[in-house]
Nucleic acid binder design. Structure first.
Lengths: 200, 200
DNA sequence: TGGTAATTGGGTAATTAGGGAG
DNA sequence: TATGTCCTAATTACCCAATTAC
């Protein structure tokens, strides 16, 4: 079970030459050249090894027009935004067992949702539209408006699926809108693309 | 002996190996090597673990020719978490006029707060404890528990400042707890360190 | 005060990185 | 322009018991 709950902060905020090389699909030596010629900014360790910040990489990617094959290769991540503990847990279990390769995170409030959106950068969000202090429609709109997050698929969930609400959330960029109680068969179908890629 | 709690309002005077490692973009193991080979001075706890003084770090950085322009550089950022539009705007105005160098952001809901926490990584958070769908105490605890955000100062604001609540938020790691209506003179004092550094 | 998870130190081996000439 | 190779140095991984944080 590859379930990753809330508090995890073992991310690395710097990149080594080989990691950068992998991102651009070139050899580490080439990355070294880019740095020594000043094309790619870098910091150095006291021992003289180069360290790269994500911002430096992005800038270089834009300047040189090379598209970076970022972390598309890693395991797929799903973020569940649901304040109901019971349903939330059920969804966690269901998705984890669908594919043990999937990393499942859950936010039980808006703050946590905002945090996880940017710290784990999920591939898909299961979003409860009706949560206290959080407007699900707005959240979806914001996700789709931000360049950094617009590639994330949003699957809405609501207990009041009026035609108006469904149209509104779809217009905001959501993939689909599931009515509660959740049809798990439908959910499985929706998640199929993620599991297929994870197995590939 | 609890080192984290002993640094109530100021900076931490000792740095752990991991913290030093982050500063130099290196693994903790490497820091250990620097110390055991005598390149990096250090003190030790009674149990034999290494602790570093900022002065030791600076000296080592100079010797190695590294600029310690970690994340301390750049303009200071303040995040206001307040759902009341009127008060929120007032705070924005006040802080902006206190020092035009300060960057002021505002979150009107929990989701936005979580987003901004990680996207702008503020130096200080003005946190309303009573917001719908968001437990201010929990938020503060989470901020202080995460290595990435624990250096962020938290200033709480509440309309119901019972002694119990004040103690609870201070125990969670907040700098102070302001009662509403806000005492702007007190707020100015609290923000003084930021404005001074911004001008330096 | 007691319990549990995370960090640390030591030592050795494995990996990665930098520089330069091809 | 990008890369493969050689040599040396810097950095990291791994193991386990002790220490520390909360």
């Amino acid at each position: 079970m590859n379930m990753r709950n809330s508090q995890k902060s073992g991310e690395q905020q710097y990149l080594t030459p080989t990691q950068v090389a992998d991102m651009f699909k070139v050899s580490p030596i080439t990355v070294r050249q880019w740095s020594s010629s000043g094309k790619l900014k870098c910091q150095t360790t006291p021992g003289g090894h180069r360290r790269y910040l994500p911002s430096d990489i992005e800038e270089f990617a834009k300047t040189s027009g090379i598209n970076l094959t970022t972390s598309e290769s890693g395991p797929k991540r799903v973020l569940i935004v649901e304040d109901d503990a019971q349903l939330g847990h059920l969804l966690e279990e269901f998705i984890s067992e669908l594919d043990s390769e999937l990393e499942v995170y859950r936010a039980e409030d808006g703050f946590r949702a905002g945090e996880l959106l940017h710290t784990v950068h999920p591939d898909l969000i299961l979003l409860d539209l009706m949560m206290p202090g959080m407007n699900g429609f707005e959240v979806c709109e914001r996700v789709k408006r931000d360049n950094k997050t617009r590639d994330i698929k949003v699957v809405a969930m609501t207990g009041y699926s009026s035609e108006h609400n469904v149209n509104r959330i779809l217009a905001a960029g959501a993939e689909t809108c599931l009515s509660k109680p959740i049809d798990f068969a439908a959910l499985r179908t929706i998640l199929a693309p993620l599991t297929q890629q994870a197995h590939a």
